[in-house]
Write a protein that binds this DNA or RNA. Structure first.
Lengths: 322, 322
DNA sequence: CCCAGGCGTCCACATGATGGACTGACAGCA
DNA sequence: TGCTGTCAGTCCATCATGTGGACGCCTGGG
């Protein structure tokens, strides 16, 4: 259970009670400088950690015991916070199995947020095309703090597939082709703290990823224009990946393709990289069309606090068209 | 400000401090019976109310003053809770304008939740088809408690359009064609408490919707197979709508089409209703394909608590394919 | 039939969350 | 240029909320 507890963090950036492993405290020191200070919201932080935890176990849901184990919270506390999430419809509990799942409100918020972020919306067609033309499995992932989270997996026609990476699964940045592509897209100054923060976890659970190997993989990705996972975690499962950027240059996520090693020789790597590069360009074009201005509103008028240029806050029921 | 405060509720079901209008208290009495009891999570409930509030103001975001006005919270409290939401990346603040928006984590959770709920994913193609063939504006909405929330709006080619209903906008069930379609899909026993709960708000802000008119519109929708908004809110803006169901019969949401009154004569209503019915059937077929079992897992083995049949909680990093 | 494991609740106590008061920044106006 | 109003954001004394050890119930497996 200690190992389980060490894995779990709310959006990878929140200090939660009862978690005291060395590597975690070290990385929180690193990150707290970049995050709003936590004071007077322990309960909220805990609830949102639970939400994220449940989000990453979408398909099978989670039992209360797993939530307790994964969060490090005491059972009455976890249950009470889950009740609050259930009242908000962000989480729901299946009566028969008692397991907890993301609720419909999470979906609705995601839809409302997609007007600012829709990376996967823009990527789905490309993933379908990649898997159709290659026959292999393709993935979309996003960065969450120092980790990569798989958002979508698209099956190809080839019958031998790895089923290890599923939506919600999360790995340290650098572990896996999509995660490596996003890491390699960062500057060295950004990469070093991430490696430092993840060092304990990598040493404990990712034996194939000593830091020097990750740095070499970063160099490879920068040199070749695509990242390569030569079966570092699962010997026969190889993958290549590329980062995708918003028009303003920020990393939106990554696309990757996985196949068994016999389908990932040098020649086929190049072929798949060509397909991948074209689809990445298409996703980036769709993102550009979707956000005429970047999601952070950088195109908005600058100048001081800029309050004069902001939309009026008109919390009222507009006339209705439907 | 009192009018503003009366509008805001977290997922329409949470009692929040400082809100004491008669209609709100009355409806909470009605609803608390159906909701997990709130004890020891006031802070969490408040934070999630803010999240929902910001979610419904996606495009323009919200200032702190608007959040304070809309939530009824004191400013330091609202700010502190917003900081917690920002730490979790569910909310982000735009530095130039200081406005708050849904963050990328909301999008990621929505993507992860879409494996259980993807109504809009299944509806987008149909909305595009409806607007392409009709030339008018089409909408997808979902039920949130006693309200309907617009998730998506698809523009048609006809140049005269109402821009009143936007994603995030929320109206009482029954107000607007999509909201009416969802209301009419409920049983009378389900409808009456909703009308009772919404009565103060309807009286205050929806003069065109006395309860007997809503009941007549429900009867019309049940008789004709589609709901009709004959310009009740905006005189020249008419709309028709239909509910969409998950395979297990629960209401997934509604599709609707809006047009100016001169384009909504009886003959064209029938024509549009035909298109709408076909696309609703297509959406329902896509939902059926997507969820071989209904989202609530009703197909799972029954029998007592059914814990023996549940997936193992294996919170571990699986082997990786990407 | 018994036992272990998981789920869920209670409530005395400790801790965390609140909001009135205050400060700073900025835009608009005289 | 100076003043005023508005908004954003913070501090900390006070009090209300949140916690978790203990307990009971239910179910499945041996």
């Amino acid at each position: 259970m200690a190992a389980l507890a060490s894995l779990i963090r709310f959006s990878d950036n929140v200090r939660v009670g009862n978690m005291s492993t060395i590597w975690m405290e070290r990385r929180l020191d690193t990150l707290e400088k970049a995050m709003p200070e936590a004071a007077g919201t322990q309960s909220v932080d805990r609830a949102l950690m639970l939400l994220s935890l449940i989000g990453r176990h979408g398909e099978a849901g989670m039992s209360l015991a797993a939530v307790v184990a994964g969060s490090g919270l005491n059972r009455p506390t976890a249950r009470r916070l889950l009740l609050a999430l259930m009242r908000s419809r962000l989480v729901e509990q299946e009566p028969e199995t008692r397991r907890y799942f993301l609720g419909e409100e999470a979906y609705v918020l995601g839809v409302l947020a997609s007007h600012r972020f829709g990376f996967l919306d823009c990527a789905l067609e490309s993933l379908a095309s990649l898997s159709r033309t290659s026959g292999d499995t393709s993935f979309a992932s996003v960065r969450r703090g120092d980790f990569a989270v798989c958002l979508h997996r698209e099956e190809g026609a080839f019958p031998i597939r790895t089923h290890a990476l599923l939506p919600g699964h999360r790995h340290p940045l650098g572990v896996g082709a999509g995660a490596m592509a996003m890491l390699a897209a960062l500057s060295d100054a950004e990469i070093e703290p991430i490696l430092a923060a993840n060092a304990p976890l990598l040493e404990e659970r990712y034996a194939g990823y000593p830091p020097e190997t990750i740095r070499a993989d970063v160099a490879f990705a920068r040199q070749h224009g695509f990242s390569l996972n030569p079966g570092r975690v699962l010997a026969n499962s190889w993958a290549i990946g590329m980062a995708v950027r918003y028009p303003d240059g920020r990393i939106a996520g990554a696309l990757s393709i996985a196949a068994i090693d016999s389908r990932m020789g040098d020649a086929r790597q190049g072929e798949l990289a060509g397909h991948l590069g074209r689809e990445v360009a298409r996703v980036e074009a769709r993102l550009a069309r979707r956000f005429a201005a970047p999601p952070s509103g950088a195109a908005r008028p600058a100048g001081g606090r800029g309050r004069g240029a902001t939309p009026r806050d008109d919390i009222s029921m507009g006339g209705i068209g439907s």
